[in-house]
Structure formats: structure tokens, C-alpha cells
Design a protein around this nucleic acid. Structure first.
Lengths: 111, 111
DNA sequence: TCTCTATATGTAGAAAGCCTACATGTAGAC
DNA sequence: GTCTACATGTAGGCTTTCTACATATAGAGA
């Protein structure tokens, strides 16, 4: 998949995988792979800065934990983030409808 | 619609509106508005550079014409561009499937 | 005539976000 | 001792879209 196509949809993906339960960055990357059937391989250089950005905005909160001798920063959806996720979902539906309507127009006559 | 969401999909949109017939830039902008039900208002500063880029790549060819005293640069799909459009369409389907599968996963248990 | 709108193309520079590449460190298997 | 999986992070580059501006003709209407 063209990686640039993700632009502007990363937030929706991250908020979405955190909807069910809090996860740390590495687990988020794995969750994206699983849920996408292996299609999404988002690099760490994309995920970690994005998570920090979402926390700065207020959609996520984080706390450190040590599990099996390894440090994890676990992210959790805030109320604001949960609300935002709803907005992202409806924006996604609108987006696909709009682009889809143009791509499917093909030889159809408009007017 | 969040304008940044268009990133990476502009090419598909432009190639798509040129599939039926050659059009000049201004008409392309109008066609995008019509086909999207008014949702797509792509600024000239986006369209004109993008068209030149697509021509440089080889997906489009262009020629000048004068209609009603006004100069138009009319763009037309090349064979390469027509082929690319097919690729853009299947990439779009894959893209929506992948993102959609993550966004719809919600409370569903994976595994 | 003057003005305003629609038609028509284009550039410069900013903004944003995703990517590549690199840096660092622990745990456990072999 | 080495290699892989786990785990987080930064710096800088790259691409593309956007905003704002510049330019010009045609035609309607006052």
C-alpha cells in the first residue's frame, strides 16, 4: 500500500486501536498489523511521534510501566479522544463516499 | 472535508475525471465539484501543479487551445495514464478495505 | 465607461505529516 | 557470545497540498 495514502488517517487508526483497551506503542503497531491482515506495517518513526502529538492535543494520556524488565509507555483514550474517534469515523465515511463517487463516475454522464 | 485527507488520492481523482474526455484545468475543478456533490473544492494552486506533475510523469499530455478569446490548456489521458488509473482504482479499494477493517474492528476480539 | 463576476492559468512559500535511518537498551533463546 | 524479539525514541528528508498572490479576457449591468 502506498504509504503516503495514510496521511491524515493515522489519527483515526491510532485512536481506533486504543478504543477497546490501553496499549503501548509496540503493541499498537502489532494491533494495526493484525487488524489489517498484515497490510499495515507502520514504522516506529511514524507511530511514536504521532502518539505524542495525540497526547499533546489531549486525545490520549500515557503512563509508564515496567513489564518483564522492559519499560512501556501505555496510552489510553481520554474522553476527548473518544469523542474525536466518533468524528474520525464519520469523517472517514464522508471521505470514502466523496472520493468513491468521483472514482466510480467513470463513463456515467453527470448533470 | 479535511483537505489533508486528499493527500495521495489527488492523482486518482484527476485521472478519473479525465477518463471520459479531455478537459482543461478549470473544467477539471468544476467536474470534481459536480461529481462529489459539491464536497470537493480543490484550489487552483493544487490542481495546476498536480496536472503538470502528471504530465511530467507521462500520465497526461496537454495542448493549448483558444476558446472564446480565452486560452486553455487541455489535458488528455495517455495510454500510460489510463493504465495508471486502473492501478489507482484497485489501490483505492485496497486502501479503503485496510483502513475500514481497522476502524470497524471496535470492540471485536481479534485472534 | 466603469465595475464586477466568471472564466482561465499559474507561481512562491508555508505547513504538515509520514518515512528512512539511526541510536539505545533489556530479555531470552541457542 | 550472539542473535532475535521487545521497546522507545529523535533528526532530517521528502512529498504534496494549501494559502495567497499575480495576471488576463469576456460579458453583464449600472
Amino acid at each position: 500500500m502506498n504509504p503516503d495514502a495514510l496521511r491524515g488517517h493515522m489519527d483515526a487508526l491510532l485512536l481506533s486501536v486504543l478504543e477497546r483497551e490501553p496499549l503501548h506503542g509496540y503493541a499498537i503497531i502489532e494491533a494495526l498489523q493484525e487488524r489489517s491482515g498484515g497490510a499495515l506495517n507502520v514504522p516506529t518513526g511514524t507511530v511514536y511521534p504521532a502518539l505524542r502529538r495525540l497526547e499533546r492535543i489531549g486525545y490520549l494520556s500515557s503512563e509508564w510501566a515496567t513489564v518483564g524488565g522492559r519499560k512501556r509507555r501505555t496510552y489510553r483514550l481520554t474522553d476527548s479522544g473518544r469523542k474525536q474517534l466518533q468524528g474520525e469515523r464519520s469523517a472517514w465515511r464522508e471521505f470514502t463516499n466523496v472520493i468513491g463517487s468521483v472514482l466510480r463516475a467513470e463513463a456515467r454522464v453527470i448533470g
